[in-house]
Amino acid sequence: MIWFSALVLIPLAAVVVTAIDGGWDVFWSTITNGQTAAAIRLTVFTALGVTAVNVVMGPLIAWVLVRDRFWGKSVLEVMIDIPFALPTIVAGLVLLSLYGTDSPIGVDIANQRPAVFLAFLFVTLPFVVRMVQPVLEELDRDVEEAAASLGASRLTTFRRIILPSLTPAITAGAALSFARGVSEYGSLVLLSGNLPFKTEVTSVRILSSIENDNVAAAAAVATVLLAISLAVIVLLDLIQRRVAARG
């Protein structure tokens, strides 16, 4: 408990304290500063977009992994986990090698906005898949068969039977991938070029504040990120509670 406080709670509290040290006005003017606001906007909107893609692709991938069986499936299974285990800086390099300047397929998005999107997409890939997969495995197929025997089309079965039971898992995965996207740093260093107003994300903004010895500004922006993380955690907790309450 003490160890947890020393390592996690006190440092995080220090961030918030430093942020509000200068008063509300300073805090507000820091985060509404043009460059910072642009960075926060870019981060949040890109993370939202990526989360939207994940909400569609995640269940799809989980579906194929659980329901379909074909040669090479276990390879796909391993591939899902790669983005989670790969060091983020390596992830950036990896993406750069295919979508960077000397790309073999002629797609060069380095130092552009799609690069940020791509990096987020890569690092958040496992979250929705891994949340949905166990739920889908547990799902009772009899209910689906019953629905089908009562004349429901496959689409109806999916929409009315499968989707409702997956919704908590999808939401939880989406929340996690949003949080991860907002806080991503390592993979962007090489890939996005960190151009102010264009591809600079919030984490990079904080780092440059630290390097310029402007700790108060760094702390202010960090507090915004912390607030987002906390919101996500609270959301997750609520989802878990609802699922537990339902049975």
Binding site: L12, A14, V182, S183, E184, Y185, V204, A222, L230, I233
Partner: peptide
């Protein structure tokens, strides 16, 4: 769960501050 969802940069900053 906080360490998983907090940005690593924020983690670094927090430790530096303390």
């Amino acid at each position: 769960d906080l360490p998983l969802s907090v940005s690593p940069i924020v983690v670094g900053l927090a430790l530096v501050l303390v």
